[in-house]
Design a protein around this nucleic acid. Sequence first.
DNA 1: CTTTTCACGTACTCTCGGTATGTGAAGGTA
DNA 2: TACCTTCACATACCGAGAGTACGTGAAAAG
Lengths: 203, 203
Amino acid sequence: MAATTRALQRERTRRALVGHARRLFAEHGYAEVGLAQVVAAASVTKGALYHQFDGKADLFRAVLEEVQAEVAAAVADAAEAHDDPWLRLTAGCRAFLTASTDPRVQRIMLVDGPAILGWDTWRSMDEAGSARHLAEALTALADAGVLRPQPIAPLAHLLSGAMNEAALWLASSGTDRDLEDVWTALSGMLDSLRTDTATRGGR
Amino acid sequence: MAATTRALQRERTRRALVGHARRLFAEHGYAEVGLAQVVAAASVTKGALYHQFDGKADLFRAVLEEVQAEVAAAVADAAEAHDDPWLRLTAGCRAFLTASTDPRVQRIMLVDGPAILGWDTWRSMDEAGSARHLAEALTALADAGVLRPQPIAPLAHLLSGAMNEAALWLASSGTDRDLEDVWTALSGMLDSLRTDTATRGGR
DNA sequence: CTTTTCACGTACTCTCGGTATGTGAAGGTA
DNA sequence: TACCTTCACATACCGAGAGTACGTGAAAAG
């Protein structure tokens, strides 16, 4: 296929646009960033942007996809470091909490995302990312009989929402102490889902 | 005091603007609604709007305050119907879930709010509303020894986030069955916070 | 009755997302 | 290698909508 010059250039331009847009959106918020700033930072013009994307919202969507993919990868890495399904769940949750506390992630993924793309779209994108790992981990535990029999979807949404909000709070006023307190409380919630009532280590 | 003609007229105009803006914002979303539509619906002009508000975002803030006040009132009403602190908590949570499932509330309070005003501002407004009732209920239970000793703030944020997300999910694809499943799962989480491990009735 | 204030209307500006069109190099074809 | 097509952009422009400057008439003050 020759790795055509055109395809390479196209990909470089796209990378530049997404990269700079991501930085600007994260720093100032979607509404405060003009396309003029983005194309200037990427050293291209609006023509290039509209050749690659359908518009500002579509550019944001590409940025969000990248951010969510990275968070999902962090969650997956943390989970795959363990064999025990329960540890996979807790390690994944902790990794999500850590990754989502990054301000560069938050504004894009948790604040602007739903408002720009609509909640339904945001939801489906989220479930293609880290939320899928959560649902899968819960399903595996339910199948293994570790969790009390119950519908998974409502549980996954409750936990996902809890972690999203906690991450925002931690980034806003969070100390290391707050992170540990959140984790203790969240661990307690997770433990309460188990069939055995014994509390496993919180840390 | 005399209830001046001017003050009355001013208040009527403000009411009209907030009321119609609320309906339009809820129906189409903040970004899709122009100020021209709002002032036309309220039968005034942009001059009136900018005389009463600092701009579009400030108008939205007034709308959000009204919505949050109503939700908070619903929560407070439900809680005050009970004397037992635990029932006050659960009834308040259930009321919040019900009220927040209304699409007219969601888009303004849960989706657009944080993005338009910024998460910090949205958070402080939320804590002046229903989130305050949640924190107070939890504090009362902790003081009474019903809850295991633990920091309240992280817990309140986890629960608040869980309910926000659950409400959005319920409105999006929710049946009555889903509502009950969410409530069962949430009740389980709340129960797990108690000193006694006995599970009280979920309904 | 004069003067000031205030609530609002009118007309304008200006930023910014989006579009229509031009252009030159890459890549296929004879 | 001459020609033609495609593609990845650049340039110039348009329209919508948020925000502003200024005018006005009725209410309140004196």
